[in-house]
Simulated scan of single mutants.
Amino acid sequence: MPTTKPTTKTLREGSARKRAAILSAARELFLADGFDRSSVDAVAARAEVSKRTVYDYFGDKQTLLRAVVDAVGESMIATVRRTLDDTLTGVAEADELDDALVTFAMRIATDMLGSAEYATLQRLVRTESGNLPHRGYNSMANTPDEALAEQFAAFGEAGLLDVPDSRLAADQFIALTFGVALDRLGSANAVEDARVRPLVVEGVRTFLRAYRSG
């Protein structure tokens, strides 16, 4: 069945509280009952707003689904940026990189990849792909890589890493740490699987052998 294009009508900004309530209600219903079986009436009732308010804020149900996916993605990006600030921003010496990068990777594996938000995003994208603009849709998908690339570029400017292409370095770091865990174990959730940490540690070592300055 072909999907309907999301509306292009001008939407209301409305109140942050109502928008959050609608997104929360839609997320719960899409996960519990599926997109097709979740009506706008049901979303409105759960959010305690009128059906017209849902349409005024989001236009149609497909746009609402996309907004739910985007909101989850934004939450995860906030986690990435917060973790970068907590673990890597203050690194000023080359000998601090090993521990700092392992700490960063382990925090991502627990706080993001092991989170309910990540599980929600994966499930929505997997089960509702036919109702999203394209397979694997997540408008925020590249942002975590870009945030890490910015940090690696800063390390390059400080002389801690040799990174001619910081985005490539970020992609390779992710592949060597989370990517290996996902490929080998099917999960990078370090909370549930003790095998994740050794893979992350070795991935960081391999990354630094390629990118450490000097």
Results as ranks from 00 to 15, higher is better:
residue 37 R to H: 10
residue 38 S to K: 02
residue 40 V to F: 01
residue 40 V to R: 01
residue 43 V to L: 00
residue 45 A to D: 13
residue 45 A to T: 08
residue 46 R to Y: 01
residue 48 E to W: 03
residue 48 E to P: 00
residue 49 V to S: 05
residue 54 V to Y: 00
residue 56 D to I: 10
residue 58 F to Q: 03
residue 60 D to Q: 00
residue 60 D to C: 00
residue 60 D to L: 01
residue 61 K to D: 01
residue 63 T to M: 15
residue 65 L to C: 11
residue 66 R to E: 14
residue 69 V to I: 14
residue 69 V to E: 14
residue 70 D to E: 13
residue 71 A to N: 10
residue 75 S to I: 14
residue 76 M to F: 06
residue 77 I to R: 13
residue 78 A to R: 12
residue 78 A to P: 00
residue 80 V to I: 11
residue 81 R to E: 15
residue 83 T to Q: 06
residue 83 T to R: 03
residue 84 L to A: 03
residue 84 L to S: 02
residue 84 L to R: 05
residue 87 T to K: 04
residue 88 L to D: 02
residue 89 T to G: 11
residue 93 E to K: 11
residue 93 E to F: 08
residue 93 E to Q: 10
residue 94 A to E: 06
residue 94 A to T: 07
residue 95 D to P: 02
residue 95 D to K: 09
residue 96 E to D: 12
residue 97 L to R: 04
residue 100 A to L: 04
residue 103 T to H: 14
residue 104 F to Y: 13
residue 108 I to P: 01
residue 108 I to Y: 00
residue 108 I to S: 00
residue 112 M to L: 15
residue 112 M to T: 15
residue 112 M to P: 08
residue 114 G to H: 06
residue 115 S to F: 06
residue 118 Y to R: 07
residue 118 Y to W: 14
residue 120 T to P: 00
residue 120 T to S: 04
residue 121 L to V: 09
residue 122 Q to W: 13
residue 123 R to I: 12
residue 124 L to S: 03
residue 126 R to Y: 14
residue 127 T to Q: 10
residue 127 T to C: 03
residue 128 E to D: 07
residue 131 N to I: 12
residue 137 Y to L: 05
residue 139 S to T: 15
residue 140 M to D: 15
residue 140 M to Q: 15
residue 141 A to S: 15
residue 144 P to K: 11
residue 149 A to I: 02
residue 150 E to A: 13
residue 151 Q to A: 14
residue 151 Q to V: 14
residue 152 F to Y: 11
residue 153 A to Y: 04
residue 153 A to S: 08
residue 155 F to C: 07
residue 157 E to P: 05
residue 159 G to D: 08
residue 162 D to F: 10
residue 162 D to G: 06
residue 162 D to S: 11
residue 163 V to E: 04
residue 172 Q to F: 10
residue 174 I to K: 11
